[in-house]
Amino acid sequence: MERVPILKLGDILIVSIQIDLDDQSVLALQEDLADMVVSSGARGVIIDITAVEIVDSFIGRMFSTIAAMTRMLDAETVVVGMRPAVAITLVELGLSLGGVRTALNLEKGVAMLEHVRGAAG
């Protein structure tokens, strides 16, 4: 099983998925992220999926779970860089990623987190 590295930048955690994730790694990432949000006191999480070629229902559910989980820990999650083919497939699959914020790229994801925080505080 491969572990996905989690980077910390200020009070944002950045996860860039570069490998073809198996289900075990997906679950591990969920746990690692929750631990890391608490230990680092991060206010935002960015999941970069620019390199991800497919998102099936299991990975899609991971996004929703992480978003709900981090929200409970007072951090917002943004999924960035979804490829058009992946988005079209998700729509066809019937997955709406409810409760997950998305942005076109990393830069816009960071801006979104700042905006959300600005509105909140």
């Binding site: 497919i54 099936d56 058009p84 083919a85 992946v86 079209i88 497939t89 066809e92 699959l93």
Partner: peptide, 17 residues
């Protein structure tokens, strides 16, 4: 096509799981 590749791979992933 890229979209069709993504669709069949996604379906394969669901069915294999």
């Amino acid at each position: 096509s890229l979209v069709d590749q993504t669709k069949i791979v996604t379906a394969a992933s669901e069915l294999a799981r």
